[in-house]
Amino acid sequence: MTRAGWIRLALIVGALALLEAACRHGLVSRHAVIPPSRMIEGAWNAIAADETRADIWLTLQNVVLSLILSMIVGTAAGLMLHKATRFRRALDPLLASYYAVPTFVFYPLFIVLFGLNRWPLVAIGFLFAVVAVIINTLDGLARIPRAFVRTAAVMRLTRSQYALHIVLPAAAPWFFTGAKFAVAYSFIGVIAGEFVVSGAGIGHAIAFAYNSFDNRMMYGLIVLLFVLVGSVNTLLSLWERKLYARRAGR
């Protein structure tokens, strides 16, 4: 591990230890924050209980559905928009402002559209993630160096050879970035939806624990969720670094 990595680890462990000590000595109100050891206990209880395990499982399913849909639709839309130059340029200011709009206000509309089931939540996650995929796909396609395009012309490649052997590998890092965003945004969208209006899932379970003053369960679920999202992100980053290390000459 690098020096920065060790410092980071020490900082996190130190902060947790400090919090643990502060809580145990009553420096922080037990009603507001519980010691980290109790949080981990809560996380374990959440995994052990059938009810919360079902919530976690449901959330994960919805996130995966949202992720798959947003990757497919986002990539396809990005490819089409790249071709339709004029359309894309008209859409540019709208895409750039997209994330200022609180998407989940459309949840009631989705309930009417899809009924009271998992799909309104998947739709919110999808709406949150898909634009990040589109933006990154467009970015990747726009950044294919002109010299590569011209080289392909000189080598007299066919359309499909060009797509497979130039576009795909050249834009791959951006596709990957899009996928990373899609994972994070699918989580954010689905959980936000669960929080606001749903009757199941991790988001709902956290809100429920809060309302019934079950701090141990609430913090346990939050810790669980953060560890889950954090490890998915870390794994993706490590994989990405491995994939593109050679390219960057590292």
Binding site: A4, I188, A192, L225, V229, N233
Partner: peptide, 22 residues
């Protein structure tokens, strides 16, 4: 910066809505 960056990107990608009780 090197110490903070991964922590910040991790914070960026978690669903912060869950922090509302806290």
């Amino acid at each position: 910066g090197e110490v903070a960056e991964p922590m910040l990107t991790a914070l960026y990608s978690i669903p912060k809505i869950t922090l509302y009780p806290i």
